[in-house]
Simulated assay, not measured.
Amino acid sequence: MNSEYLFPRRLGRRDFLKMSAASAAALVAPRFASAESSAPVKIGEGKWTYTLDESWGQLPEGMSWGFGCGIVVDAKDRVYVTSRSTSPCVAVFGTDGKLEETWSKDFGNGYDPEQVKATAHCVYWSKEPAGEFLYFTENVAKDAAGQPNLGKRIYKTDLKGKVLYTIGNVETEDATHQKFTWTNPTDVAVAPNGDIYTVDGYGSQIVSRFDKNFKHLKTIGGRAPKDAPKGKDAPHGTFNTCHGVWVNTLKSEPEIYIADRANGRYEVYDLDLNYKRTIAGDFARNPCCFYQHDGHIYIPDLGGLVAILDKDDNCVARLGDGKGVKKDEFQTGQKDKFAAPHAMCVDSKGNLYVLEWVPYGRVRKFTHTPA
């Protein structure tokens, strides 16, 4: 790479103000709002009631979301969104819901926006002793010669996208670049002691543990034998799309939660990656990843819902269940239902931000409005 930034090209509020009147208006007027529903759109009930904020998360004319990849919130409640789009590659929203920055990328002899779009996947926010950081996960994609040589990397950056460390598919190793064999990584999580956990969820199905300096400590996992049981009864320590990983700190000792998506279960391990238990039920259909807030774990699920677990793994809420709704109904309606939640986060006030694996991203904010 010949740039110190993962996304060196970016636009800010001044740039947006220079755009056309139509584009500027799109920043403050919700393009998808309609007069058909004057009543607020709500999901959940009781303590777990949320109201859709239809004015949040709008993009200027000329920009659009792609398939929803990752969404995180920083310590100041700024929201970072990645999707499979060339414009923007990353969008950053302020606490007022207005777009503050968009990031794109052009290394010249590195990845162009189309290659970024092809490899984009999850992003993880981490508060560490040295500050706040982002971990970007890249999927595999084909290069110009048609070979699967792009992606397969994880970047650690600061909040401006300055690359601090790269691990995975790198050409040469040095103090900030390390080779590691992933075939299609999907997620990252960081433990309180700085250890880093990764999942190769679209590829080899391995789960790996590194120390805070990316020194490899342990790898488990892989696919189950073809004749082994499937689903929730699949052999523990094997996975079928281990898509998401999280370090749950709600109990006396931290635990590693793994979203074993195609098996419809959450697998729980200790910090040394020894199996502890399995969580399954009708709320775990195709779980993608996890987010922890205020004593609970939130799980976006491609099966059309967001599940919330308490510290004892009990499901206390199933939000926006869109099971059975036709896919083409979500773009113009079904606002109180989810199509395919791929990632989510929760801000300091308990508000939810959910994006979905649909071609238009469907990035939405749900304000916490407990009944």
Rank of each mutant, 00 (worst) to 15 (best):
M1G: 00
R13H: 04
R13G: 07
L17M: 13
S20T: 13
S20L: 01
S23Y: 04
A25Y: 05
V28W: 09
V28A: 11
A29M: 05
F32T: 12
F32S: 10
S38A: 14
S38T: 14
A39R: 03
V41C: 14
V41S: 15
K42N: 01
G44H: 01
G44A: 05
E45N: 05
E45G: 09
G46A: 14
G46W: 04
G46F: 06
G46C: 05
K47P: 01
T51C: 08
L52W: 08
D53K: 06
E54P: 05
G57I: 09
Q58H: 07
M63W: 12
G66A: 11
I71P: 02
V73M: 14
D77M: 08
R78T: 07
V79C: 00
V81E: 02
S87K: 14
P88G: 09
C89L: 13
G97A: 03
S104D: 01
D106C: 09
D106I: 04
G110F: 08
G110S: 13
C122S: 15
Y124V: 03
Y124H: 15
K127W: 02
E128Y: 07
A130P: 03
A130Y: 02
G131K: 06
N139A: 04
D143T: 04
A145C: 04
Q147E: 00
R153H: 01
K156E: 02
K156S: 00
D158R: 11
K162G: 03
Y165F: 15
Y165S: 08
I167C: 07
I167M: 11
N169Y: 04
V170C: 02
E171G: 07
T172N: 13
A175R: 03
T176W: 01
H177I: 03
Q178P: 11
T181H: 11
T181P: 04
W182Q: 02
N184A: 10
N184K: 05
D187H: 09
V190A: 07
A191R: 01
D195F: 08
T198S: 10
V199T: 15
R209M: 11
F210Q: 09
D211T: 09
F214D: 00
G221P: 10
G222H: 09
R223D: 04
R223W: 11
A224W: 08
P225N: 10
P225D: 13
K226G: 06
K226M: 12
D227S: 15
D227P: 10
K230N: 14
D233I: 01
D233W: 03
D233P: 12
D233A: 12
A234T: 08
P235R: 07
H236C: 14
E253T: 11
P254T: 09
R261N: 08
Y266G: 05
Y266H: 13
E267V: 15
D270W: 01
L271G: 07
L273W: 01
N274K: 15
A280H: 08
G281P: 10
G281V: 10
N286G: 05
V306Y: 13
A307C: 10
I308R: 07
L309H: 14
D312L: 11
C315W: 06
R318C: 13
L319R: 00
F330C: 05
T332W: 14
G333A: 06
Q334W: 10
K335W: 09
F338N: 08
F338V: 08
P341H: 06
A343M: 12
M344H: 05
D347C: 11
K349D: 05
N351E: 02
Y353Q: 13
L355D: 07
Y360N: 07
V363Q: 06
R364Q: 14
T367D: 00
P370L: 00
